[in-house]
């Protein structure tokens, strides 16, 4: 295989990696940041993707927009805002629920959403939504990934970011310090959903197709896996998790048995991580870099 062939072949997996990483970063804010388990993250991704696609296919020609860069930027905004709105609709009632119920309610909403998408003929129903213009590409995906990563890293230090983390660690203590835990959780959920929507907008304009399956529970589980395997508490962990989930199957391309069994190993890693190394694989890697590991938690 020549270098050129390799690059050619790598583009799609890299796009998938970038998009999974953006999804995972969004969920990281909800799961690792606010401590809320959303089992319906893929639904917000699908909402973003469908809305962005509907925007470029139906709305943009009507508005007379043709510039591809502008269109892509606008569709990112549309994707983010629509997912944000969907996240808001789900979160407002569901955040009143405690832990496990919240997880099931988000799962339920995702299933309902998938069912609804299957029944909307304007976006293809069960057949899926095709013929979406190709607007995004590898650079788009990676620049967006970098921006989202950067923004989330800075977001942690802001007032809201601190409030979200405090709420995750101890709601009663957070409230006793004047933090409205409800708005903290709501913000985390809504922002995380919006990020998923951005990933959706990038996806539909790279692959030029989306089907209701994208809102599936199994897709949501993949994102949860990425966040948990890499290490819930860190952003780089989520990106690492996405890398493992996308690249490992690609690397196993020539080994069908291993490739088919990959979910078994991912599931085992998740259980292992939860039981023995709650900070995820990232913290295991950190152990091989003693200096970096000692930075946090050491005396200075």
């Amino acid at each position: 295989m020549t270098v050129q062939e390799f690059l050619q072949y790598s583009i799609l997996p890299l796009i998938f990696f970038g998009i999974t990483a953006i999804q995972a970063l969004g969920l990281q804010l909800i799961l690792g940041g606010a401590g809320l388990l959303s089992l319906g993250h893929a639904a917000f991704y699908a909402v973003g993707g469908y809305s962005a696609a509907a925007f470029t296919v139906y709305a943009a020609p009507a508005l007379g927009l043709t510039d591809p860069t502008l269109l892509m930027l606008l569709s990112l905004v549309v994707g983010a805002l629509s997912a944000l709105a969907a996240g808001f609709l789900v979160a407002v009632p569901c955040l009143r629920l405690q832990g496990d119920y919240l997880a099931m309610a988000t799962l339920g909403f995702a299933e309902i959403l998938g069912t609804a998408l299957k029944n909307i003929d304007a976006v293809g129903g069960t057949r899926g939504f095709g013929n979406i213009p190709k607007l995004s590409s590898l650079p788009w995906v990676f620049v967006t990934l970098a921006l989202v990563w950067w923004a989330l890293a800075r977001f942690r230090r802001t007032g809201l970011g601190m409030a979200i983390q405090a709420t995750r660690d101890d709601e009663i203590a957070a409230r006793s310090l004047g933090i409205s835990t409800y708005s903290a959780k709501l913000s985390a959920f809504v922002i995380g959903s919006a990020i998923a929507g951005i990933a959706g907008a990038l996806y539909v304009h790279a692959v030029q197709f989306i089907s209701p399956d994208e809102a599936d529970f199994s897709r949501s589980v993949i994102i949860v896996l990425a966040v948990v395997i890499g290490g819930m508490t860190s952003l780089s962990g989520s990106v690492l998790g996405a890398l493992i989930l996308v690249v490992v199957p690609e690397a196993l391309r020539h080994n069908d048995t291993l490739r088919e069994q990959r979910m078994i190993y991912f599931a085992l890693i998740v259980i292992f991580v939860m039981l023995f190394s709650p900070k995820g694989l990232q913290s295991l890697f950190m152990r091989f870099m003693p200096k970096a590991a000692q930075q946090r938690g050491g005396t200075r």
């Binding site: 923004a151 800075r154 977001f155 230090r157 802001t158 007032g159 809201l160 970011g161 601190m162 409030a163 983390q165 405090a166 957070a174 310090l177 004047g178 933090i179 409205s180």
Partner: peptide, 15 residues
């Protein structure tokens, strides 16, 4: 973290 609420509305700016 205890000063979070005093920083309300500044999140975008501090971002």
């Amino acid at each position: 973290a205890a000063a979070s609420w005093q920083r309300r509305g500044q999140s975008v700016a501090s971002l």
